[in-house]
Each structure stands twice: as structure tokens, then as C-alpha cells.
Design a protein around this nucleic acid. Structure first.
Lengths: 197, 197
DNA sequence: GTCTATAGCGCGATAGAC
DNA sequence: GTCTATCGCGCTATAGAC
């Protein structure tokens, strides 16, 4: 059977510990303690730290991808609504779990050969409804990629670089949150202005 | 004496290895081998892996900060020239050393307590010439921070997330480079359009 | 200053009892 | 399935010869 309670508890604990510490700094002992199970059970259920990690990172990236994919391909929303939805969605995800973006980005750079092969090689933008809507607005395929890349950059970087921003702007945790929240309201307007949409 | 050839070789090797692998995955053996010196000499000169690392990361962040600080406070350049200079400068830095941004961002999130205290707590933007020039263009102090944050986001994120972008856009290394280079030309225009500068 | 040799520890993994 | 006990390795760090 592949879904015992213990197995689930280990996976949830592993997600928490891996996301917080990264692969290298995470110890199987941390995961066992977080899950409240015996250390040996990790290897019993998941064979090795690396197999367990691969499951976690793949699930994280797939969840991110599918979520984005659904928003990009909803024929019922226009460009402006899509941008707003993407912002809302990522803010919600990252405010609940501020270490998730660094986890995904950092581990993706380390383990890219393994992971990239598991993902749809055509990309998320390619032939999406969002791309088509941008083309209807007079953008080329190449420009559509850059539009999308800027949306993602402006949303995600401040979550990736919390300490960086605190240094740049000379603020503490409270000031950081104010900046982040202020941006949230502005991003859709910035993007539409930037690309004349 | 604090500047023997061996000491220098160790520091250069350590920079290379730490930037490439990160603190946790880097081994002192890697550093010794890279430097072509005996393993024991690392502890002789730098006492421990952690002391050596602290020196490297602080130097990296200080170099980044000072470079940025100089560009932001040059009274001889206007806003548009500053934006172009910042873009040119970071592209040059990151194209030569693509792993540097992830190193700085990732380690800064891990070790932030230690490092943040070493940096000017007022921030880089605060009372800079760039801020003053933006205020002359009718922006508030808060808006000036967001302008700057967007410049940095749009420049750096694609270097932080090479694999991420390859997945999003469905491109290989060649396609990635094309996208990055195309952006370089567009960024100054995007920023000025976005903020009506 | 530089080397060899090794201490000492923490890690992932597993054997084997229950 | 779950536990205890432990193996074996690789790491950082250091003692001590040269």
C-alpha cells in the first residue's frame, strides 16, 4: 500500500524541512523528528533522502506549474484579469509560505537535469490563451514571453530577496511588509502601462 | 602578515567554490584542491570554514553594494543614464559570473542576522542622488523605492532563475541567452514607460 | 609555513529483533 | 510496520613532525 498515515506524515514533514533548509542542510533526523516517527522509517518508505527529495521538489514545481497553467489558459478572463489573478495567487501562496520561492529556484538550479525532463518541454506560455490574447493586442510571440517574464520578475523577486531588499531600502520587517503590500496593488497597472495593454 | 600568496590563493579558491556550490555543499577539501594547497592550511590561515565563508560573503555583498552606491550617487548622470548604467553593469557582472546572484541571495537569506548588521542600515536608496532625481520628477520617497525595486527585479530575476525560465518559456540554453540579451536592450525603455520618466 | 596523520563527530543507511 | 543499535563514510579541524 502506498498511502499509510506514516508515509503521509513523513512526506509532509519532509516538505516542511526541505523547503525551510534546502536539500544540503536538511537532515533525515530533522524530518523524522518533525514527522514524529522513527528515523529508520524514512528509508523504509522512501529508500533514501534523495528519492524523498525528488518527490517533494517535483510535486512543488508541478503544483506551481499547473496552477499557473490554469490561470494562463482560462478563456473566460481577459489580459487584465489574468494579470490580477496571477498577482493575487502568488501573493497568497508566498505570504503563507515565504521560503517556497527560494526553495524552488535554488534547488531547480542544482538539480535541473533531473527535473527539467519531467516538465512539458514546450513551456507554459507557448500556445497559451494568454499568449493568444497578447498577440491579438499586437504583440509578437517573443514580446509575449518578455511580458510574462516581467510579471513574474516583479512579483517573485521581492519574495526571493527579503534580506536583500531590507538592505537596499534600509527597512526592517515591518517596512518590508509595507513595501510588498504596496506593490501588490500597483503591479497590474505597472505591467499594463509598461506594455501599453 | 595577512597577505601571503597562499592566503590569497585560498581566498580566491574559496570564493569560486562557495559561489558555485553554496556554503553547505562546499567542502574545505574542494577549496584546498582548487587552491592547490594543503588542506590544513585553510584552518591555519582562516581558523574555520565558517570564518572563511563570512569573509567571502561579506566581501561579495560589499562589492555589490559599493558598485551600486557609486552609480546611484553620480551627480553627473541623469535618471535615464543611471538606469542604463545599472543594467550594463549588472549584465556584465552576471554574464561573467552567472552563479553570483543565486549565491548572494541564497546565503543572505540563511545568514542574514550576521550580515545585515555589517551593512549601512539606512539603505542604498535613502538620500541618494538617484532618489533626489526621482523626487524632482514628481515621485515620492516611497515611489522611488518601488522604481528601484522594479529595476533590480527585472534585471536580476532571469539570472536567478535560469532553469525556471527555461521551463516557463520552453527554451534551451541558446533560447535563454537570446531572451536575456533581448531584454537588456529593452529594460531602460520599460522602466521609463512604466513610471512616466 | 607546510606537511602527514588522525581525532572526533554527524550523517545516511541498514541489520535484525519485535 | 516499527523499533534499537550500529555500521561506515566523509566531513571539519587539529596535533605534531619537519
Amino acid at each position: 500500500m502506498s498511502n499509510s498515515i506514516t508515509e503521509q506524515k513523513i512526506k509532509e514533514a519532509a516538505r516542511k524541512v526541505f523547503v525551510k533548509k534546502g536539500y544540503d542542510a536538511a537532515r533525515t533526523r530533522d524530518i523524522a523528528e518533525e514527522a514524529g516517527v522513527n528515523l529508520a522509517l524514512i528509508n523504509y518508505y522512501y529508500r533514501s533522502k534523495e528519492f524523498l527529495f525528488d518527490k517533494i521538489i517535483l510535486e512543488s514545481i508541478e503544483a506551481f506549474r499547473n496552477n499557473l497553467y490554469a490561470m494562463m489558459n482560462d478563456p473566460a478572463t481577459n489580459i487584465h484579469e489574468k494579470i490580477r489573478l496571477i498577482v493575487e495567487n502568488y501573493y497568497c501562496m508566498f505570504e503563507q509560505n515565504p521560503e517556497l520561492p527560494m526553495f524552488m529556484f535554488h534547488e531547480l538550479e542544482n538539480k535541473n537535469e533531473k527535473i527539467i525532463n519531467e516538465i512539458n518541454p514546450r513551456g507554459i506560455i507557448h500556445e497559451s490563451v494568454f499568449e493568444k490574447q497578447l498577440i491579438e493586442h499586437g504583440k509578437t510571440q517573443e514580446e509575449a514571453k518578455q511580458v510574462f517574464l516581467n510579471i513574474v520578475s516583479i512579483i517573485i523577486l521581492p519574495f526571493l530577496g527579503k534580506s536583500f531588499i531590507k538592505i537596499l531600502c534600509g527597512v526592517n520587517d515591518t517596512g518590508y511588509k509595507e513595501i510588498i503590500n504596496k506593490r501588490k496593488e500597483e503591479i497590474p497597472l505597472w505591467i499594463t502601462t509598461m506594455f501599453n495593454l
